Amino acid sequence: MQALIPLKPYLQAKLPFMTADKCHLFIVNGTQAKGYMEYTARLLFLDYRGDPIEVIMQIREWLKSKNLHLDVTGNDVQISFSSEIVDANTFDLEIDFPQRDKIVMDQNGYHVCPELVWSDIFDKFVPAGTE
Rank of each mutant, 00 (worst) to 15 (best):
D51G: 05
Q58F: 10
Y39G: 02
I56P: 00
L68Q: 06
K34F: 14
S65C: 10
L63I: 13
L68I: 08
Y36I: 06
Q58T: 05
R60A: 13
L46Q: 02
Y39F: 14
A41V: 06
G35W: 10
G30Y: 06
H69T: 10
E54M: 09
L63Q: 08
L44G: 03
W62R: 01
W62P: 02
G30T: 09
M37Q: 08
A41F: 03
D47K: 05
I59Q: 04
S65P: 06
R42L: 11
Q58C: 05
I56F: 08
P52H: 05
M37W: 07
F45G: 00
L63K: 04
V55G: 01
L63M: 12
L43V: 06
P52T: 00
D51P: 01
L44M: 08
W62A: 04
K66G: 03
K64L: 15
H69Y: 14
D51A: 07
G50S: 04
G30W: 06
R42N: 08
S65K: 13
G50M: 02
Y36A: 09
L68Y: 02
P52E: 00
H69A: 12
N67T: 15
L63C: 10
N67R: 14
H69W: 14
K64E: 15
E61K: 15
M57Y: 12
N29F: 05
